[in-house]
Simulated assay, not measured.
Amino acid sequence: MAVVELRRQHVRGNDALVVGHRGASGHRPEHTLASYAEAIRQCADYIEPDLVSTKDGVLVARHENEIGGTTDVAGRPEFAGRRTTRTIDGRAVTGWFTEDFTLAELRTLRAKERIPALRPANTAFDGLYPVPTLDEVLDLARRSRTCDGRPVGVYPETKHPTYFDSIDLSLEEPLVEGLRRAGLDRPGARVVLQSFETQNLRELDRRSGARIVQLVDCTGAPYDLVATGDPRTYADLVSQKGLRAISRYADGVGLCKDRMIPRTADGRLGRPTRAIADAHAAGLTVHGWTFRRENQFLPVEFRRGADPAGIGDLAGEIRAFLAVGMDGFFTDNPGAGAAAVGR
């Protein structure tokens, strides 16, 4: 008798990191536990909660602290008096803000689809899900595994840290405390901390053992630099000198797609820049954002049909960026992202 022992082995394709942007926000309303769970089901390596604070200092997952477009608060008469105008990062914004709600009040609200015209299927889930806390997102990640059996990673972004500091609701301390409670503030934990500002990342680098990624927008400048009169812009940050400076406190950069491959005047992908090569030379990984499957977001050559809400060739776009050295990416459609890297 011949005994043959068969060992199961998962075969990975490209090792590029797939980050579920606000969960699987192309399939469920963003920043809900359902969206994060769907991202995990679609083989995301990491899930990405954007973090803002409630009035009582609890971190919750919302893309912005203004929640009129992502919850049903506008239809709640008991909160009509909370509508106000605040100056966020130098810009007047009118609506309802998480910092004016206690967690108990915020939990009475329900999430809704942010861009229903482009994602009408997601509106079927409007009104079903509450706003999750950081602790709940971390708990979901701890109890879950990726498609290749590893722990699901968490990639939190602190939103408007200078603004929240100005109203005595600092984000950094409760973020680090939350990671410690979850047992995730340790070397080797699958946690990456990110921000469009710089000073708070330097602080997080001192406070936490997590990896750090400096986000870089296509235009403008980090607001903490603007607020202190520092003339540097995001363009300065991705210069060779700027990237070397980032490497002193961060492990990677999260680049707007146009920083890597800008689009031509007719909306097609143009010639790649030196940003990826320069970041790698500085010892930094490069994660690109944001990859979405709807035609409206895609370069012309990857669109399918004329409907802006139509589904184009997202995997093709992702592969074009991987071909020039991108190490990972944020996507609203993790399943398509996983397919693009051959999983």
Results as ranks from 00 to 15, higher is better:
28 R>D: 03
160 H>Q: 10
308 P>Q: 12
343 R>T: 02
119 R>M: 08
86 R>V: 13
225 L>M: 12
305 G>E: 11
2 A>V: 09
89 D>L: 12
160 H>L: 10
126 D>M: 12
260 M>L: 15
238 V>M: 10
325 G>F: 09
152 V>R: 06
76 R>I: 04
168 D>Q: 15
236 D>M: 07
157 E>F: 06
77 P>N: 15
145 R>I: 10
103 L>E: 11
62 R>Y: 02
254 G>S: 06
202 R>F: 11
254 G>W: 05
147 C>D: 01
213 V>P: 00
234 Y>F: 15
230 D>C: 06
168 D>W: 10
81 G>W: 15
151 P>K: 09
300 V>M: 13
325 G>H: 04
90 G>I: 10
238 V>Q: 03
24 A>N: 02
82 R>L: 12
260 M>T: 04
258 D>L: 10
202 R>G: 09
191 V>I: 12
311 I>P: 08
53 S>E: 06
197 E>Q: 12
123 T>A: 12
304 R>K: 15
310 G>V: 01
112 K>P: 01
94 T>Q: 08
121 A>W: 03
183 G>N: 14
198 T>S: 13
170 S>M: 14
188 G>T: 06
253 V>Y: 02
147 C>Y: 05
126 D>N: 14
227 A>I: 06
288 G>S: 14
323 A>F: 02
94 T>Y: 11
146 T>F: 09
337 G>Q: 05
210 A>D: 07
228 T>N: 13
224 D>M: 10
117 A>G: 12
29 P>Y: 00
278 D>L: 08
142 R>H: 01
5 E>Q: 11
87 T>A: 14
61 A>L: 00
262 P>I: 10
166 S>W: 13
95 G>V: 06
113 E>P: 03
208 S>Q: 08
217 D>V: 00
280 H>C: 04
73 V>H: 09
212 I>K: 05
103 L>H: 07
58 V>F: 02
339 A>N: 04
61 A>I: 01
19 V>A: 09
37 A>W: 02
314 L>A: 04
265 A>T: 09
215 L>M: 10
5 E>I: 05
292 R>L: 06
257 K>E: 11
53 S>G: 04
322 L>P: 02
81 G>H: 14
11 V>S: 08
205 D>H: 15
291 F>Y: 07
125 F>P: 00
145 R>P: 03
261 I>A: 07
268 R>F: 09
165 D>F: 11
325 G>A: 13
180 R>C: 01
142 R>T: 07
297 F>C: 03
35 S>T: 07
242 G>K: 01
